[in-house]
Design a protein around this nucleic acid. Structure first.
Lengths: 247, 247
DNA sequence: CCAAAAGTGTTCCACTTACACCCATGA
DNA sequence: TCATGGGTGTAAGTGGAACACTTTTGG
């Protein structure tokens, strides 16, 4: 195993999902075992990640990790920072665990961090089929993770907010057909602000690449909302080199 | 020498400077020698960069390189991308040169790219004191460089433009005392657009952290312009968590 | 008919844009 | 006195922000 990995560089992915109400992050369990006693010492959480393979491109490594943990291909991935503090992995037990887990002697791992945006309805079927257990954890309820993963997550959220304000990435977190209210909730939850719903609708519906369907919401006990979809190609055509509307 | 470097990770710096008229980039010469004949085979240009040292943090490596090549400390540095294509260094002669130059066997170098903004009037005194020759090259006149350095430069320029539109980084390229016209030229040259000078002045002078001095321009054969300075602390105080004016 | 969320218009203000001339200085 | 760039004001249009009620549906 060790021969195929580059022991100096890893990638970590902050996988965001949105369940129409809350922003969630996919975290995976790490189990630390006492080998002699064959006994579980502790279980904690981390971001999905991996050392890169030898001669592997970073984007490839990120896609690979994402597929390993969610089963999804072709999802939105953005590299947003690099973490290189030599003390980022300092705990003796962590170094030991890495050694056992990878078969590699670790000295200083630089981690390139990505965030990705997935549609929860597509991702959830895969959640149970993992060897390593993964959980969707509410962004407001993140535990202490291993290494510097809390810091990575915090910075991912800042990067996501910045991108959400200027680029049409919110649609990556919603199913293809969505309501304006769902999109508004997404903006409100991620940015942590309240938006005036009349103004939000006006602004959104002015964008020609947000296209109403004949279809309506189903199974709600109130007036069903119109469903819309986001036409990315049209967006690209209209906005060649220009700005997204900003919130 | 080889023992102190990490052979997998390098940093490259795109150092921007502005001479009141043109945007320039600091490039350094690479000389390829035929060792047997002790003869210079060719000279070409590259971005200043270096392998990182073992257990060295990336920001530290970038500052180190910058100081090596410009003599400057504490200058504006921003990490903007990572280049990891395994074919980014593919030329046999380049691999050979790297080996001779670093004493290290190179397999796959991932390069973390920074751009930095320097005040030309402060940087120029150091230009001549370098062991490796460095040149300020006009952004419109960049030759073919080695490796993927042209691609790195192109992406740095895109990143700089994005940042210039939303953050007060232009001041890093000007001396402490500057005229509004100089700042406008900077925006025009970097963004590649024309700006209305009445509107530009109005917008700028509305910002309270751009402070007029009693002093005027000297030695010009026309009405001397008022000098201003940028009060970064005041900017931070005013704009806690908010937006810079956008151009 | 009640509860729940969808959907809709107008006014005010701030900001952007377009546009042309006089002023202060050094040579 | 001329050449050069500095410095200034106004009007029209655009976009954002604030604000409350009616409509449609399921239960």
């Amino acid at each position: 195993m060790s021969i195929s990995y580059n022991p100096h560089i890893s990638i970590d992915c902050v996988v965001f999902g949105f369940d129409y109400k809350e922003l969630k992050v996919l975290l995976v369990e790490r189990e630390v075992w006492d080998k002699k006693k064959n006994k579980l010492i502790k279980k904690d959480l981390k971001l999905p990640g991996s050392l890169i393979r030898k001669r592997e491109e970073l984007d490839h490594a990120a896609s690979r990790v994402l597929q390993e943990f969610t089963g999804l291909k072709n999802i939105y991935l953005k590299q947003f920072d690099v973490f290189s503090n030599p003390k980022r992995i300092h705990n003796a037990a962590d170094i030991q665990w890495l050694h056992e887990h990878t078969g590699i002697e670790i000295e200083h791992i630089i981690s390139v961090a990505y965030y990705s945006l997935v549609k929860l309805d597509e991702a959830s079927p895969y959640e149970n089929s993992l060897k390593t257990k993964a959980h969707w954890v509410n962004i407001n309820n993140i535990p202490k993770m291993i290494f510097d993963h809390n810091e990575i997550l915090d910075k991912a959220l800042v990067a996501l907010r910045n991108e959400l304000r200027t680029k049409p990435v919110g649609f990556e977190l919603l199913p293809k057909k969505f309501t304006i209210r769902q999109l508004q909730n997404l903006y409100e939850v991620i940015l942590g602000i309240n938006l005036d719903n009349r103004n939000f609708r006006k602004k959104l519906l002015k964008q020609k690449y947000i296209i109403p369907l004949e279809e309506k919401e189903q199974l709600v006990n109130h007036k069903p909302a119109t469903l819309y979809y986001y036409d990315q190609k049209l967006y690209n055509k209209i906005n060649e080199g220009n700005q997204f509307f900003s919130i």
